[in-house]
C-alpha cells in the first residue's frame, strides 16, 4: 500500500466517523450485550439491533467500539445522508 493510500484510508475512516452511524443486521444478532457493555456512553445498541434501527443517537461518538467488539458482525458503519452535503 502506498503512503497516499494510507492517508486516503485514514481520511475515509474519519469521514465515516464524523458523518456515519452504526447500522445493525438484526438477523445476525443474538442479543449478547457485548455492544452495550463496551459502549462508553451506555447507549442501548442492543435495543437498536433488536428493533433493526440504526443507532441515530445524538450522543453516539461513532467511536466504533461496538462495531469492533461484536463477535457476529452485526454492526457496521454507514454514511448518513444527513451531513453528506455539508461534508462534500
Amino acid at each position: 500500500m502506498s503512503i497516499l493510500n494510507v492517508f486516503k484510508t485514514n481520511a475515509s475512516r474519519r469521514t465515516t466517523a464524523s458523518v456515519g452511524y452504526v447500522v445493525p443486521d438484526s438477523y445476525r444478532c443474538v442479543q449478547c450485550g457485548i455492544c452495550n457493555y463496551n459502549c462508553p456512553i451506555n447507549i442501548d445498541v442492543r435495543g437498536h439491533a433488536w428493533r433493526g434501527e440504526p443507532v441515530k443517537h445524538s450522543e453516539c461518538l461513532t467511536c466504533g467500539e461496538c462495531v469492533a467488539r461484536c463477535p457476529r458482525g452485526v454492526l457496521r458503519f454507514e454514511l448518513t445522508d444527513l451531513f453528506i452535503e455539508s461534508a462534500s
Binding site: 443474538v30 442479543q31 449478547c32 450485550g33 457485548i34 452495550n36 457493555y37 442492543r46 435495543g47 433488536w50 467488539r69 463477535p71
Partner: peptide, 21 residues
C-alpha cells in the same frame, strides 16, 4: 436472557448482568 451470550460470559467478554436484554 441471551443464551448464546453464555459463550462470551465464559471468555470474559461480557458480564452476566449484561446478558439480560
Amino acid at each position: 436472557y441471551s443464551r448464546p451470550g453464555l459463550a462470551y460470559l465464559l471468555t470474559g467478554e461480557v458480564q452476566d448482568k449484561s446478558l439480560f436484554p
